[in-house]
Nucleic acid binder design. Structure first.
Lengths: 214, 214
DNA sequence: CGGGCTATTGAGGATTATCAACTGGTGTGG
DNA sequence: CCACACCAGTTGATAATCCTCAATAGCCCG
């Protein structure tokens, strides 16, 4: 595992640093060391689609398809005392070498990929063809499950997340997201403010995004 | 590569054979040898969500989360002369061993995973928050790009795909999908019938699912 | 021939997007 | 320190999209 650590090239990105210019050959593999990263793509003018949110310990793969343009963006985690996100990365040839040598890493990697794909499939189900309140309820659970949580606020989604971010992840508009979060708040399911959401009634939220009844 | 082939357990599934009973420990890795597979999950009664369609040569990973129930299903490819799909699979410990020994496989595997994840991200963008006609146009291109195509009908989506399947993949209802395909047909973009779609005007279809204008 | 499946079409209604105006918090710079 | 711009969020009216429900037609199969 020491081998694993030392084989990554690591750097503290300055705020707003774009990952694209770093383009490595073939594909990119990485692990997030601290904070949170928004993975997004511009789709029009200032509009963007958020693909995923990576948090501490997340593995990820990223390729560089023919289409140019900014694809990934690092932003400061503003909740955790303004610490800057840190990204460890390596190119895929290096990873390949490591996987061959390190059985532990290899095993962890396979589990991680399996989990990632299952997670994406779940997201397709819940964000695919349900009503807006179902989507948001699922999304809040999803995001909450990603973080380690802060000790004093265990049910606070542990990174900065705006209405616009939530809307983008769920495939809704900012206004709809706002209205639905307001109704969640009236029902006592959550508390929220500028850039943060805290879950108060986990079971109640879960009930809103069940896929099958018993 | 001979090592690679012989290490897979292969079998010709009978029609409608379910994969779940095969449950191996941890995760499942596989490659589709012939035909097409629908990967879906039941969400309610007889309703299902199609997660992906695997075609010949596709790699896939599949895990078995705590929740029980059918998750993957093998069905006969009804276009290609009623041949039955063939699935090669192995459990993750075996895969791990192979990846360590076989550099070619390891490289192919990493590229495949990178491609898969990128593909899923693209799907999130296009199926996330656009209009129904955009979604379907993208989906048709996506499905068409998956298959090798039949020699005499190169622009026919090379496997059985119903309106209900398309609707499920795009997160629409069967009726909406039908109406939009009818409008595509009136515009001369496609031809279609029971269980098949042929693309006539590829550029025209592409124009409907562009994410950014120049 | 009848039953089941795939697909089509229509009418009506519910949900959500769009457009717009407005509030209050945050950071900046004079 | 205050004025200012900007950003995140709220709320309302209206319109468009898509879903739901329903009826029907054609195809495939036993």
């Amino acid at each position: 595992m020491d081998d694993f650590q030392s084989s990554f090239s690591s750097r503290n990105m300055e705020e707003g640093h774009e990952l694209s210019p770093l383009a490595l050959n073939q594909g990119l593999f990485g692990i997030v060391a601290a904070g949170a990263l928004k993975v997004f793509r511009y789709v029009k003018d200032d509009q963007f689609a958020i693909l995923d949110i990576l948090v501490e310990g997340d593995f990820f793969h990223y390729g560089f398809p023919d289409a140019p343009g900014v694809r990934m963006f690092v932003y400061p985690d503003q909740i955790q005392a303004m610490t800057t996100s840190c990204l460890l990365y390596m190119d895929s040839t290096k990873l390949q070498e490591l996987l061959r040598r390190d059985a532990d890493l290899s095993s962890t990697y396979l589990d991680s990929m399996t989990g990632k794909l299952n997670q994406l499939h779940e997201r397709f189900i819940h964000l695919g063809s349900y009503a807006a309140d179902h989507k948001l309820a699922y999304l809040l659970e999803f995001l909450h499950s990603k973080g380690p949580g802060k000790a004093d606020y265990p049910d606070l989604i542990p990174f900065n997340i705006t209405r616009k971010d939530l809307a983008s992840l769920a495939g809704l508009t900012l206004e709809t997201a706002s209205r639905i979060l307001a109704s969640f708040e009236r029902s006592g399911l959550i508390r929220s403010g500028r850039g943060w959401v805290e879950i108060l009634d986990y079971p109640g939220l879960s009930k809103l995004c069940r896929t099958e009844e018993l």
